[in-house]
Design a protein around this nucleic acid. Structure first.
Length: 580
DNA sequence: GCCGTTTTCGGCCCGACTGTTTTCAGTCG
């Protein structure tokens, strides 16, 4: 493999993983130092390969030792320390560390005292009941590990669930909890509230005076695969679908501190706690407390805690320590977009598309109810097998739209979602495409082309004079299909040059473009559209997800074209042939 | 391994639960 930033990040991530085993703790200072360096490099967009050791050490969290490892990687393609760790901790041994309940300390003892090197060794040792003889281990631990081994491969520590699978479950659980007697507040937290595209487990925080009945209900819910823990204020279960859910109960006064704490991210929390310490306070899940007197300063709302720390309140999706603390301190967070800010939907399918289900009239009626000023109908272009619409179908639709638009407050425009062919070609011909009010274009096929070809086809579509936005940039389906690989920087620069908008697709299975692409795009000054990509009428109501994704990318409201008033939007939509 | 208007040494974020202990270590988030 040739040296690249991606390759470096992979090797550093492996260095973190193996160092946990070597140091015996994920909290070891060396491990955390590597993690901090990795975190910094992930959000660094510039050219890394050309940086010297002294330039690298200017980056936050990167000292001489890590800087030298980075140089070593670019010069030799590998890192000697990592090579040594790989020899000490071969992959089959690392696999053992994925077993829930088995940490680096126990693992090291299993190896040194019982000679266990891999899963087969562990299985044999458990069958021979050897583990229970080790000091500090017992029969229960042995049985717990036996159970964990049975489903290894299914539920490991690394397993993550697509947000589309976790979010409905979390919303249902929170609704049920809120309806319970004695429950004052309930909220899902964790990576789900931060709106990450995959989540490790569902964290729910409840405010209630009496935790016991809630705990009892939770561990006795129907359809659970396993109860992992059942304490006074904290319990964990695994659902039949294999998703772990953690529930924590606090008092109403502690609720703000608790959801702040359990929403994370870990890196964001550490920054907040550091800020508290600098002021002579401590911050934990129960509140912001004076370190000397033990008096609680604030705890009931997140906002009050941020304000006490002299920070603007940070929306949950931004809490990844990607610059939000500094911007909150300067009161310079981007103005977020909410569904109420959206004045139109620019990517909607009717039942003319083979994969969509609602008639035009129903779509239009719902868009009007949502208070939109404009709506662009974008059925699939004819090159999409099965689902595309031919010229005659679109011409008939044009007539239907004209009739519905007559006398309507809502501006109904006819657009189309074109297919970007393998070489960047588009459906129909330029003359026919010119008849639409707005064209968007997206990749629906040929996901396996080489990176160069993908970059070229995207740029060709972006440069087409009629194309005003690119739908679901990568074409990925989270957890099911990886997106196409392409040169992100080159593609984003083409967006800027042509004033083409990058779609923020609200479909939970897509959430495309990804947050990291959005972060980069907004830095470069790209414009955006937040769309529903609805394939049935209720899909129009999912804009909230696109808005949360936009927050993850620090996308400011002003850069989102469909927050603009109708006149300004139409001017942008029609400013086509001018820019080439 | 990183870092420094208290510093080049000595710090580095915090707590619940479990299983094994009889005061705590390990794991997890």
């Amino acid at each position: 493999m040739t040296a690249s930033k991606e390759g470096l990040l992979e090797q550093l991530a492996e260095l973190v993983e193996l160092s946990i085993l070597d140091e015996g703790s994920p909290a070891a200072f060396r491990v955390r130092a590597y993690e901090n360096a990795l975190h910094e490099l992930r959000s660094y967009h510039g050219e890394l390969e050309s940086l010297s050791v002294s330039q690298l050490t200017k980056l936050e969290g990167i000292g001489k030792s890590t800087a030298q490892k980075i140089r070593e990687y670019f010069e030799t393609g590998t890192i000697a320390k990592l090579v040594k760790l790989r020899a000490d901790y071969p992959p089959e041994y690392v696999r053992l560390s994925k077993i829930p309940g088995l940490g680096p300390k126990t693992l090291a003892r299993l190896r040194s005292e019982l000679g266990i090197q891999n899963v087969d060794d562990l299985r044999a040792a458990i069958e021979q009941e050897k583990l229970r003889d080790l000091k500090g281990l017992g029969e229960k631990t042995e049985k717990k590990l036996a159970r964990a081994l049975e489903r290894l491969g299914g539920v490991g520590k690394d397993k993550r669930t697509p947000i589309a699978d976790a979010l409905p479950l979390a919303r249902r659980l929170v609704d049920e909890l809120r309806a319970m007697e004695g429950v004052e507040r309930a909220e899902y937290c964790g990576s789900l509230r931060r709106f990450r595209e995959t989540i490790g487990d569902i964290d729910i925080v409840v405010a209630a005076a009496d935790a016991a009945p809630i705990m009892d209900w939770f561990v006795a819910m129907p359809g659970l695969r396993e109860v992992l823990g059942h304490g006074d204020t904290k319990s964990s279960v695994v659902t039949a679908s294999g998703i772990q859910v953690d529930l924590r109960v606090v008092t109403a006064e502690q609720f703000g501190a608790a959801i702040l704490y359990f929403t994370g991210s870990k890196a964001h929390n550490i920054r907040l706690r550091q800020r508290a310490i600098d002021r002579g306070w401590t911050l934990n899940e129960y509140g912001l407390t004076d370190a000397e007197s033990g008096d609680v300063i604030v705890s009931d709302t997140e906002r009050a805690i941020y304000e006490a720390l002299e920070l603007a309140p940070v929306p949950p999706p931004m809490r990844e320590d990607r610059g939000e603390i500094e911007r909150a301190a300067d009161d310079d967070l981007p103005t977020i977009v909410t569904p109420a800010d959206l004045r139109g939907d620019l990517h909607v399918h009717t039942d003319r598309s083979g994969d969509a289900h609602s008639p035009l009239a129903a779509i239009v009626a719902r868009a009007a109810e949502l208070g939109y000023e404009y709506l662009v109908i974008t059925d699939h272009g004819e090159d999409l097998p099965q689902n595309g619409v031919d010229r005659a179908g679109l011409e008939a639709q044009r007539q239907e739209i004209a009739e519905l638009a007559d006398g309507s407050e809502l501006a109904i425009l006819q657009g189309v979602e074109l297919n970007i062919g393998p070489d960047g070609g588009l459906d129909y011909d330029a003359e026919f495409r010119a008849g639409f009010d707005l064209c968007i274009a997206g990749v629906h096929s040929d996901f396996d082309l080489p990176r160069e070809s993908q970059t070229e086809r995207l740029i060709a579509a972006i440069r087409d004079p009629k194309v005003r936005a690119i739908s679901h940039l990568s074409g990925r389906l989270i957890g099911r299909r990886p997106g196409i690989e392409f040169d992100v920087e080159a593609v984003l620069k083409a967006f800027v040059e042509t004033d083409t908008a990058l779609e923020i697709n609200s479909g939970l299975a897509r959430l495309d473009a990804s947050d990291s692409v959005l972060l980069y795009a907004q830095e470069l000054g790209v414009k955006f559209v937040i769309t529903s990509d609805a394939h049935r009428v209720d899909g129009l109501d999912r804009m909230q997800w696109g808005c949360l994704l936009a927050q993850r990318g620090f996308v400011p409201r002003e850069a989102v074209v469909n927050t603009w008033p109708r006149k300004r939007f139409l001017e942008w939509a029609r400013a086509t042939e001018s820019i080439q």
